Simulated assay, not measured.
Amino acid sequence: MIHLRTRRDPVLDAAKGFLIILVVLGHLLARTDPSAAVATHALITGIYAFHMPAFVFLAGITSKPSGIGRRCAQFLTLLAVFQVAYFLAKHLLGSDESFPWVTPAWLLWFLLSMTFWTLLTPVIVRFPRASLALSVAVSLGAGMVDAVGYPFSLSRTLVFLPFFVAGFTHGRKVLARVAGLGLRGRAVVAGAALAVFAGLLTWSPDHNWFFGSKGFDVLEVSDLSGVAHRAVLTAGLLVLMPRKPTLLNRFGQRSLSIYLLHGFVVLLAAPYVLVMAKDNVWLAVVMLGFLTAGIAVLASMQPVHETIGRIGAICMPLVERLGGAAHASGTDSATAAVGSGDAASQRATVGAGSPHR
């Protein structure tokens, strides 16, 4: 297994680590009755308002237009393996659902979406400005077509596409500007993010609006405002991240394993979470916080992370023979999008109109 030597961005890793914590906590909270208590409703609103767009934006930053075949093969291999694993886990817990042949199981939609976005990177490199403008138009248009929904992760792929393209074309520049902000500038951005969050709580929107899988006819909203408030919240996240390595950085570098494995714990704990929330919602929130931390620590352990990498690399010999590729790693490519960022610094920064060299 070959590991590339690269320079990691501590802010980027910390942001990914914080977001993967929100993903786990959000999935646990969703197993309660979020609308039954102010605490859970506020947390769900705050988490789902921006965590996936921000995650996709960071995935765009760490993506690159080379080694596409290897990376797509890793995404699809992990999708196939965990599609079966989650299906079996649900049946062991009493589900009678049929196997979802065309719809990624639950959280696995991200792997299929990443495959589609990765395939687009050569086009984005060639036409960065046009790609960004077109991605916004496609995202808006996706909400107008009833046929766009869960199958093949099509709705989320199109709805979140602008965030991936923006991260790919402007992400490094955004990170550089955030790093250059003084205390006053960071305070302004953080204040704007808090104001947006307060506005969302006041509005109390339907949480389906945040999932990227429903059309405008169901949600009765405009995606333009969504792009704006998600951008502000993402900027607020970046300015609040620590500039020196912390435990969040480890979570960010190994977030692929956390992302893929935490769902099994969520499924197992779901009945107990609901009972706990009904008895004492505040105690439930605290306990879910501890459970989230435990999941992140265990799933980010090096042996676990390496095992996920090996699973993703099962098809690599075949891909290398077909594509003539000589360098592949079980974690360097797949986790660049979801977690480690090991290969992130290998690609040049993309400006608005300056393709990779």
Rank of each mutant, 00 (worst) to 15 (best):
V84W: 03
L78K: 01
S257F: 01
A14G: 14
V84A: 06
F127G: 00
V285H: 06
A179I: 04
A73R: 01
L183N: 07
V275H: 09
I61M: 14
A344E: 12
A54R: 06
I44Q: 15
A343H: 03
R184E: 06
L322A: 15
S300F: 04
C72Q: 12
R250I: 12
L108W: 07
D96I: 10
N280V: 07
S300W: 03
L291P: 01
N249W: 00
F99T: 05
I61K: 07
L58Y: 05
L88W: 10
A235K: 00
G351E: 12
N208E: 09
L233S: 08
P34I: 12
S98N: 11
Y150V: 07
D279C: 04
Y86R: 12
L29E: 00
A313Y: 04
L108R: 08
H41W: 14
A284Q: 09
T335K: 09
L194S: 07
E320P: 00
V56M: 03
P100Q: 09
I44L: 12
A179G: 13
G309I: 10
A42T: 15
N208F: 10
R156C: 08
F216K: 06
V81Q: 06
L318M: 05
V189D: 03
Q346N: 02
A80E: 02
A352Y: 15
P242D: 07
G171E: 07
A293P: 01
S329W: 14
V23L: 06
V165F: 00
S300C: 07
F164H: 14
G312Q: 11
R7Y: 01
Y259P: 08
S225A: 13
A176Y: 01
F18T: 04
T118A: 09
F211T: 14
N249I: 02
A343N: 12
E320V: 01
S66H: 06
S95H: 03
G212C: 03
A39P: 06
G167P: 14
V227P: 01
S131Q: 02
G215S: 07
L201K: 05
V338I: 15
T349A: 15
R129C: 05
D342H: 12
F197K: 01
L240G: 09
G212N: 05
